[in-house]
């Protein structure tokens, strides 16, 4: 089972400063643990929302708003993708993220065989994903 551990933003991650050595070391130890346990598939840290943007949809209209965004707790600061045998195991790993405040959200990742394979749109999405990933591979 694949899970995403979604690291929520906080004032520090939104400040735009590059994480200090102490924070990098603590995350490094945590990532080492995930690697040593054979569960880490990937992960990234995100720049602050000041460097990002939002695209909103309303019928055929699209509007773009540049960051930063105010509601810090709703924002993401990074993610890990892990493969584990249960939700409890994913939660146990989330509990070990080296934080003293803030939040990590645990979400299960869909796999392609969970969708209705006869659905035409599912087929198209699979195709799109394959082409997209072939380009970026």
């Amino acid at each position: 089972m694949k899970y995403m551990l979604l690291l929520k933003a906080d004032a520090a991650s939104e400040s735009g400063a590059v994480p200090d050595d102490e924070a990098i070391n603590a995350m490094g130890v945590y990532n080492d643990e995930l690697i040593a346990a054979g569960v880490l598939l990937g992960g990234e840290g995100l720049h602050s929302s000041a460097d990002g943007a939002r695209v909103s949809f309303d019928g055929d209209d699209r509007s773009v708003v540049d960051g930063p965004f105010a509601e810090t707790k709703e924002l993401l600061a990074g993610f890990w993708m892990i493969e584990v045998s249960s939700k409890e195991e994913a939660v146990e790993w989330a509990k070990r993220v080296p934080l003293s405040s803030g939040e990590v959200e645990v979400r299960q990742v869909f796999t392609v065989d969970e969708f209705n394979q006869d659905n035409e749109h599912v087929q198209k999405e699979i195709q799109w994903r394959e082409e997209n990933e072939a380009r970026t591979a």
Partner: peptide, 30 residues
Amino acid sequence: AARVDRDGQPVLLADQDRSRWDRSAIARGR
């Protein structure tokens, strides 16, 4: 995901639906 069909029958490599291959697993393997 591509190795057996809906009835659980094995599908030969040449006949597999390659869109069902897990591209991120392939990237990690490479």
